[in-house]
């Protein structure tokens, strides 16, 4: 029987991580099942819902549509790395302040997608935020509060020295 297992080294949230995986395992499965980083959620598992969004080498992607073996030497940011210790990221604080979540299942993906947006476009318009987050579905909030929270966090981050 063929052994497909490969050893992969990556940097996840600033820490070097090594894992063994088969080519058929998605990055999402690796994060959740092998590395116990269960903040990243599985939704549709086919690239439609955005619940599994992580930042791979500076670009937000659906981790369900990335193979674990593709992550060799990559830098990955997940929701677990967003806060600075006990200090929540301004995006997380704004989501809480604005009640930009109800069940919270889509929230990790939305936060990572929003982080990627603000890293490239510090003060996006509401329309731009809507367009950017179109890949992230939320069945609870109706999006209005999410858009508001991202806009607020953008302002706050922009004003920081």
């Amino acid at each position: 029987m063929t052994d497909y297992t490969t050893r992969i080294t990556t940097v996840i949230n600033g820490q070097e991580e090594t894992f063994f995986c088969e080519p058929r395992e998605s990055l999402l499965e690796i994060l959740r099942d092998r590395l116990q980083l269960t903040g990243t959620k599985e939704g549709c598992n086919d690239g439609n819902c955005g619940a599994c969004t992580v930042i791979l080498d500076g670009v937000s992607v659906n981790s369900c549509c990335v193979l674990g073996v593709e992550a060799e030497n990559a830098s990955i940011e997940t929701i677990e790395g967003l806060a600075d210790g006990d200090m929540l990221h301004p995006l997380q604080q704004a989501f809480i302040r604005e009640t930009a979540l109800q069940c919270g299942y889509c929230t990790p993906g939305l936060l990572m997608a929003a982080k990627d947006l603000l890293a490239h476009e510090p003060l996006p318009s509401n329309e731009r935020i809507r367009l950017w987050l179109a890949n992230n579905l939320c069945r609870c909030t109706g999006y209005t509060r999410i858009i508001k929270a991202v806009a607020q966090a953008a302002k706050e981050l922009h004003q920081k020295p």
């Binding site: 969004t53 791979l56 549509c65 997608a113 947006l117």
Partner: peptide
């Protein structure tokens, strides 16, 4: 697709 599709 959307942004995270376009990233790939």
């Amino acid at each position: 697709g959307g942004t995270s599709i376009q990233g790939r």
